[in-house]
Amino acid sequence: MNIKALAFDTGGTVLDWHSGICKAFALAGQRHGVERDWHAVTNDYRRASMAGIVGKLQPAFNMDDVHRTVLDGVMAQHGLEMFAPQDHAQIHRAWNSLNAWPDFAGALGRLKRKFPVVSFTMLPLAMVMAVSRRNGLEWDAVVSCEMIGAYKPQPLAYEQAARWMDVAPGQILMVACHNFDLNAARACGYHTAFVRRPLEWGPAGPPDPHPHPDCTIVVDDFPTLAQHLGA
């Protein structure tokens, strides 16, 4: 491999969305004296959000808009009609205050000393800025699919990201915990690294936990990835 840049999926691979959003639902439930399987509610919310943005071309909305608009349907699905508008707003705002996985920030610093590091994500730019500042993540650049107008796994997203980085696809290592992202990146010529995130979807476990055999690198955590890359 002649790697000249690293591109990181951010939602799920870098950010622990499940814990943050699950806590927001649980806090709203406590205010109303309501109990549900908040892990299941959170995962249904994530599925609905992904369904609303994955693969879109030139949408008139971004992923933050989807997070806002699908929330009412998820609440109705789980009998949470008693949740007030302020509960809705509090759960929606939780996306901007997610924690990064604890193994990431230190490894990012190590990797950045050797490679340009880019957040290449379906999340909107404003959200990546907020969570990066919260977690002390210093990217060389952020490439959001909203800036391109094509959302993963559309080939245009990967092609444009490589053009903006001014690096040939074969010299970029796409890093993610999701096969759909890595498979699409590989089809566009990227090298791929699968980082396992067994807790991404909480106790239920991720829906696609096994790396595709064509991945260039498979690791259990980010310090191991940094070591593998000599950082």
Rank of each mutant, 00 (worst) to 15 (best):
R113M: 12
K114A: 14
F115N: 04
F115W: 05
V117Y: 01
V118N: 00
S119T: 02
F120L: 13
M122P: 00
L125I: 07
A126I: 06
A126G: 10
A126C: 05
M127H: 08
V128Q: 04
V128W: 00
V128G: 01
M129R: 11
V131D: 03
R134N: 11
R134D: 06
N135Y: 06
G136Q: 10
G136D: 09
G136A: 08
L137M: 13
L137C: 01
L137E: 00
W139T: 02
W139D: 02
D140R: 02
A141F: 03
V142F: 00
V143S: 09
C145S: 15
C145N: 12
C145Q: 14
E146H: 11
M147R: 12
I148L: 11
G149C: 10
A150K: 08
Y151D: 10
Y151N: 09
K152L: 10
K152V: 06
P155S: 12
L156G: 11
Y158P: 12
Y158V: 07
Q160I: 15
A161N: 10
R163I: 10
W164A: 09
M165D: 04
A168W: 04
G170M: 07
L173I: 02
A176M: 07
A176F: 05
H178V: 02
D181A: 11
A185I: 06
A185M: 11
A187G: 14
C188W: 08
Y190Q: 09
H191Q: 15
T192A: 14
A193G: 10
F194P: 06
F194N: 04
R196V: 03
P198M: 05
P198G: 06
E200M: 12
W201A: 14
A204I: 08
G205L: 04
P207E: 10
D208F: 06
H210D: 15
H210I: 15
P211Y: 03
P211S: 07
D214N: 13
D214Y: 08
T216E: 15
I217S: 03
D220T: 09
D220R: 05
D220V: 04
D221A: 12
F222C: 06
